[in-house]
Amino acid sequence: MTDTSVETPVLTAPEHGENGARGTGTPMIVFEAVTKIYDPNIVALRDVSLTIDKGEFVFLVGPSGSGKSTMMRLLLKELEPTSGRIIIGGRELNRLKRSKVPMLRRNMGCVFQDFKLLSNRTAFENVAYALKVQGDSRSAIRTKVPEVLGLVGLGSKMSQMPDELSGGEQQRVSIARAFVNHPPLLICDEPTGNLDPDTSVGIMQLLYRINRTGTTVVMATHDREMVDKMRRRVIALDDGVVMRDERRGSYVA
């Protein structure tokens, strides 16, 4: 490995276009026979193989403990698979050095059920942090952050602390943080899990709009109504096995 170009993005930037939900045919995420076993003997994922194309919008459904979150954490390289290969944007995660993991994450937005905001920082600072970690200048931060917060509809609440915002607003901040770098891939782990149905619709619309800019969106969810309404690709997991993978699927078969 003679990779000297540290600043090169791990993933390639999204093509801004109307290819939206259909996918472009080039793979963004590839799982090849991935198995994850937690100590001592809990099998979270069993021989999972799947491909998600660039620009796709994919729902990952299944009951609690079916392996959705494990897949998310594997994508973030928070965990290592016990066996098998994971490839994101042409990069094999197993071969990615630990020192390159921050680069990977900067090119991958992530949104969580519990928002994971920095509680002692304002909405603005939370979004700005994602830019600061990659060394953006203060002037770049001053233009990019209000822009993306305006995009998620929080232009007037930038200096609010997270606990002064509603759940839906906090999730919007976290989406703004995930999207501020315009990453080619957005990973959402039950982003509407803590929100009421009306708020969830707003969040979903936001994710949909992000997907329309060419960003691949992978979303783990329990929200049956939402999945059925959106009619996107659905990958159903149960007990660590892919039970179903449908182009225009629904929550239950």
Binding site: L76, P102, R106, Y129, R177
Partner: peptide, 16 residues
């Protein structure tokens, strides 16, 4: 420690 976790997930290097 949660703060540290969030920082890491957003792509901060260890030294950052």
């Amino acid at each position: 420690r949660r703060e540290v976790e969030v920082m890491k997930l957003v792509g901060a290097t260890n030294w950052f």
